[in-house]
Nucleic acid binder design. Structure first.
Lengths: 340, 340
DNA sequence: TTGTATGCGTTATCAT
DNA sequence: ATGATAACGCATACAA
């Protein structure tokens, strides 16, 4: 057996109009639920629609309205994002949910190569989408720049440090980091270190600042290890360094659960108990946190809401509303488990 | 500061034609790299294109050609898939890569509600996409049925048990399961159990059959625990049951790494060493495998290739080629680590 | 090799 | 409240 292509001719508005005994204009009006349609005409049209099995042709509609009824989601570095970022899935679901409610289609634009980057840039300027959502852009992001210059409706999830004038939604990383560090301190720790990452984004900077604020005078810059990636291996390397610099360390704040898991591995390796000898806290409340031994105390991010709010911002812009670009910050919650 | 909407009028083929001093037809020809265009005309057109900053309007093109140059990826159960399935990210990347090469746009259609399901079904019949790829459909999947009836170009990643006539690409679950079970047996184990899942798909059935085939006469149906989900908790529950039924068990094949990790947790809890007392093997070669203590011996899936081949099948159908629907099976590899 | 004319299926404008 | 009719921007068959 072999596969075949689509066939059957599709019904058009003309067919519907003919069956309903009205004009195309009237059909179009009921399709777009406009006013000024008689009940008789309306029911005749809806009957005809189901009778001929009409479904509207989007290409023609997009051409006529100059809108695509689609919103793009730009996904950079898909490898690290899809395989490492614990929140991306929930963010995507939140976006889809909001868009779905408004009958917009989500189009995922994944950038996995230089070629993709060009294609997507062209895609965005080509009218394929009415708006765009960008997740975790880095500084000097070329696509983000294109979007800013184009003036297309857009929103960021997470805020790139070098782009202004585009609304964004994120969490208050500073307060969250400060809160969990404070809680860690309150378990009686005296020498607390941090493994910081992603300093090329606001989020990374703010987590570090929150840590520092929580410690106040007790803050020791030597006890802060910085690393580019939020990866498991970064946690391992970071903890080794920390142990070198301060053998008497008794508390660690890792800026991600993945890194915190690495910290745990090193601690087990050198025979220090958790939370007995050392208290460890993470960030994200990802699968890493529940999987770890012991399960991690960490910061929960409202990932789904992050996506939903970003989508709603784009939708509002599309409706012509004026949107504040100051940034929306969603509440986080501390989840206290057994690692501290 | 406030955000604004798109503005600037876009250049059309007419503008290009005017600047280049040729007709629209000629411009269209060089755009589609057809033959019968003089070098002079071609270079004049390309110059004009960059001069006026022309980018083609897809809606108009789609309307004229009656094609969308887009392929949909239907993603069901996004929660479990994005949050649990270790391979979905790589599959998506493989699809995108193949589509990108052919200048097709990937459109992710996520189904997260009844409403989504209807929208997507309509979307598919509405000419928004030329083809569709469906990942891990279950039996009685409504979307899969719509696709089958529509006769639209399509391919499955993984094979739903009740749909015929649509090409699919997957791995040889039977052989893979048989191979890793055999290898586990060869480490000297005598009482080997299995935790099976996803029996509503070919993949789940085949893994169980492979396990049985590897054991031959030593196969004991009492040592096979079946569970619907490939989840971590399923592994925990399954291992407890197994321990009840066969306290002398010394080997376990879990049908996913997530479940194998659960097995490990239970074993640690009851004080049995791995791989000393019990040898454990998983399936997927996901992050679970490397994160586990000890790291899991498991079956590696060529996830990226899975996606790529499915996309290529759809592309071939779109070119009008006849495609075999017998199923394509990709090679797996055993990754031997420390858990057995 | 190139230009012209027509059609793709909607929406939107203007009469009626 | 409804019906004609003109865009929308491109591809393409046909003529030249």
């Amino acid at each position: 057996m072999t596969a075949r292509r689509a066939a059957s001719a599709r019904a058009t508005i003309n067919d519907v109009a003919a069956v309903a005994g009205v004009s195309r204009g009237t059909v179009s009006r009921v399709l777009n639920s406009e006013a000024y349609v008689s009940d008789a005409a309306r029911s005749a049209v809806t009957d005809a629609i189901s009778k001929v099995g009409y479904v509207r042709n989007s290409a023609a509609r997009n051409l006529a309205t100059r809108q695509s009824h689609a919103v793009g989601l730009v996904v950079h570095e898909p490898h690290s994002l899809f395989l490492e970022d614990p929140n991306i899935g929930s963010i995507l679901l939140g976006i889809n949910s909001a868009l779905s409610d408004a009958d917009y289609q989500l189009v995922s634009l994944v950038i996995d190569s230089e070629r993709d980057s060009h294609r997507v840039a062209e895609y965005l300027s080509g009218g394929f989408v009415d708006g765009v959502i960008i997740v975790s852009a880095r500084a000097h992001d070329p696509i983000a720049k294109v979007v800013a210059e184009l003036g297309i409706a857009a929103a960021f999830v997470g805020h790139p440090v070098d782009i202004e004038g585009i609304p964004y939604v994120g969490i208050d990383n500073f307060s969250a980091a400060k809160a969990i560090t404070t809680k860690l301190k309150e378990t009686g720790r005296r020498r607390i270190g941090m493994i910081a990452a992603g300093l090329d984004r606001d989020s990374g900077q703010d987590r570090m600042a929150g840590f520092r604020a929580a410690l106040g005078d007790a803050f020791d810059p030597d006890l802060v290890i910085t690393t580019p990636l939020y990866a498991h291996t970064s946690g391992i390397d970071g903890m080794r360094l920390l142990l070198d610099r301060a053998p008497d360390i008794d508390g660690v704040f890792a800026a991600s659960d993945a890194m915190a898991a690495g910290v745990l591995d090193v601690l087990r390796e050198v025979g220090r108990s958790v939370p007995g000898d050392v208290g460890v806290v993470g960030f994200d409340d990802s699968a890493w946190a529940t999987r770890a031994q012991p399960p991690l105390s960490t910061v929960h991010q409202p990932a789904g809401q992050l996506g939903r709010r970003a989508a709603e911002s784009v939708l509002a812009q599309l409706r012509g509303e004026t949107v504040d670009t100051a940034g929306i910050f969603l509440e986080t919650a501390i989840v206290w488990r057994d690692s501290a």
